[in-house]
Amino acid sequence: MAIHHREAFLDNLAEQLGRSRKRNVEAPHYSVHPQERVFQGATQEELVEKLEEQCKIIHTSFMRTDLERLGDTLRSVLLNYDVTKVVGAGGSRNEATGLTNFYQEIQLEGYDVHIWDEAKGQENVSFAERAGAGIVFSDITLAESGTVTLFNDRYNGRSISLLPETFIAIIPKSTLVPRMTQASQLIHEEEKKGNLVPSCISFVTGPSNSADIEMNLIVGVHGPVKATYIIVDDL
């Protein structure tokens, strides 16, 4: 932890700009704010519709369910993908949504399930590397782009949404906002309050892809190849 060569470097910039070093900058007022107009005033239900539409563009399956049927829905998704090895995020939301039970049930049915647990260290990563699906909760969901925002932390390791071939995001309906604007505002507010931003925030939009070979869209490169979003209504 250190900062090297800063002062001379920044002094030079100030000099180039023809002034002395700035010690304070007032927040600027920009002349236009188009980002606030996108889906302005849309209801939660309308945002769900936008999200569903966008899912078609980003090669992502869209499902809708409620808390009661969440387990069944997940089971059908896993069956559909023919996945038996599952890594899931930890934390209190598993309990609150009944996922803890669900995970126990499918384990009894022969699924290999691993819930992210910091105490298990690197084992988490190596399991994720072999897992067929990773299940996470969306912290903020952006309707416009079809993006799930993940605050990666001790419960939600970066690898869960990255290493398995299939990415499954559980999206509480209440997490839906119009676009990245609202997510950024929230993070900005937290920052101003002095709350640390997570070490990693991942805005994930569908499966990984590339157009590097003759501009052909290839879905699934280094990250997940398939993605499913499950909207949970009463959350």
Binding site: G121, N152, G157, R158, S159, V197, S199, S202, T205, G223
Partner: peptide, 23 residues
């Protein structure tokens, strides 16, 4: 590319925290 957002926008701050496993 005409995408609303790309598949991954990743914002990384500092090192992983003490209680985190990856990063």
């Amino acid at each position: 590319v005409g995408q609303k957002l790309t598949s991954y926008i990743t914002a990384l701050t500092g090192t992983r925290l003490e209680d985190e496993v990856d990063g």
